[in-house]
Amino acid sequence: MPVLTFVEISGGKIKKASVEAAYYGSKTAEALGTESLAVVLGEASGDELATLGQVGIKKVLHAADARLNNFDSGVYTKVVAAAAEATQADVVALSFNHNGKLLAPRLSVRLKAGYVPGAVELPQFNGSTMTVRKNVFSGKATAIYQVTTPRKIVSVNPNSLSPVRGSGSATVEAFTPAISDADFRVTVKGVDKVVGEIPLTEAEIVISGGRGLKGPENWYLITDLAKEMGAATACSRAVADVDWRPHHEHVGQTGLTIRPNLYVAVGISGAIQHLAGVNGSKVIVVINTDPEAPFFKAADYGIVGDAFEVMPKLLEEYRKFKAAH
């Protein structure tokens, strides 16, 4: 029976993390020899939803109820579970992003389905058993989880795979589960979005600074390059703790976990708690004056040097590169 992916909409657009999840769902369906479906909650245009066909989705169940425009984990659980029942989906896939992290465990209970959070690879199937790998111990190891319940749920870590887009177009079908006003229990009073910046968890390139930058007035070394590269900015906890940078920028064990394609760490020592949030990055570049800084052990490329000298050069060289490509 089919694989059903929960796809999220934000500002009328499909979230990048959900495109990855849909691709993951389609690849899983392919391995199982079954169909790949998606469920979408809240208002969205049919044209936007049809683009899910490019990542292998055949049909989208669209619960277009405007009351579903805001995320409420309780009612979302009810609707997605109803879609899983209606389609008799064997596997439910979704992103291990902000909302997915809460929706999935609730679905697991509602559907009595074993759930693996934050998978980093496609699942394997052997009869009715599913196994899939995830990171554990804050990225210091991985583990293979096994699920034997008839229905399975798996959430995929953002940036774990790069969707390959084809030319398909998904059909969109209205989905109208029975929900009442009493199901909505979370009221949104206000949203405070950092506009104009790239959300850190979705960024492909992240430029990050630590205490080695000496003070907030020197952050232009980070932000200038980030702007030029279309990158997001991050920082170490030490920096957020002294208010050089806002707390939502701090990455690591107690901050955000990110997996960009490129993580550039400038003046960050590479403490284990910092690494826990970034060691899933595809490529790590470290710039640090101290050749013994632990971060070099986790890096792909390194420059032993003073950020105040290296960063302006890096900006200049990147500009040249951009002009030439």
């Binding site: 697991s108 009595k112 389905a113 074993g114 759930y115 693996v116 196994t131 554990v136 210091k140 190891a141 991985t142 583990a143 293979i144 989880y145 096994q146 699920v147 319940t149 790590i284 570049v285 470290v286 070099f296 052990k297 986790a298 890096a299 792909d300 490329y301 390194g302 420059i303 032993v304 040097g305 003073d306 000298e309 290296v310 050069k313 890096l314 200049e316 060289e317 990147y318 040249k320 590169f321």
Partner: peptide, 30 residues
């Protein structure tokens, strides 16, 4: 509902490629 069947540690520490601080263009190229 779930069980961990095996664990593994990362293969081995990455080998960092060091680039001279006076040759930043090389980093961009790599």
């Amino acid at each position: 509902l779930t069980a961990v069947i095996s664990y593994s540690l990362p293969e081995k520490a990455k080998q960092v490629k060091l680039i001279d601080k006076d040759n930043v263009a090389e980093l961009i190229r790599l």
